[in-house]
Amino acid sequence: MNQTRSNIWCVLKREWKGYFATPVAFVFIVIFLALIGFFTFSSQLGQFFEREEASLSSFFTWHPWIYLFLVPSVGMRLWSEERRQGTMELLLTMPVAPWHTIVGKFLASWAFLALALLLTFPVVFTTGYLGDPDYGPIVCGYIGSIFLAGGYLAVSSMTSALTRNQVISFILSVVICLFLILAGFPPVTDMLIQWAPGWLVDTVSSFSVMTHFFSFQRGVLDSRDIIFFLSLIGFCLFTTSVILRSLRTN
């Protein structure tokens, strides 16, 4: 147990330092904050001010879409880069179980995304300064957002194991994440309901990150939502390990 933890921690630390060894981390955070600020405060899109309500719904609404491109750009290098550089051979001949390295690398990127998200704290302050928001939904919204990022990231980890080409890995994971959005995106489900039975549409949309992400914003932590994201992450990381194993076998 102890061994497992220290292995994961060691891989995590290395990966984390990797982000800050180059300006990539900085550039990413700036782009993320700029985009999210633009969407939230834009008078056309988020209408944060126009709504005149002390909530962050105009802020969170955009997360699934912004993450759609930014999370795969963080996750695409996870395994593609290891494969391209050949360091995978090094890492997987170290005395650690492959899943330690998968989890370690995943957690490092997740922590990095969480850091970027936490840097949006001025939005919360602004809301608090302008009005009197209910902090419950805000905290839950942040938690949901972190889980959402984790879900996308796990998908990216999986697609990055598939190829040593980062561009392909990026595109694949955008496509999969887009599917995870659209399956529960109201305009799409509204259209589906016209010709598909209701139970089917509900089943499909229950696999969507949208359904679960928005339920966080109501200010309740529903265990079903948390379980959804955790199983998405678990499933994708497990698939990553299967892909890596089959790569080595042949």
Binding site: V11, T87, E89
Partner: peptide, 19 residues
């Protein structure tokens, strides 16, 4: 293969720690 984004010291430190 070595991790290109690390320094030599950082890399060796990692190799030692993971062992």
């Amino acid at each position: 293969p070595c991790y290109p984004d690390m320094t030599v010291h950082g890399f060796l430190d990692f190799a030692a720690e993971i062992r």
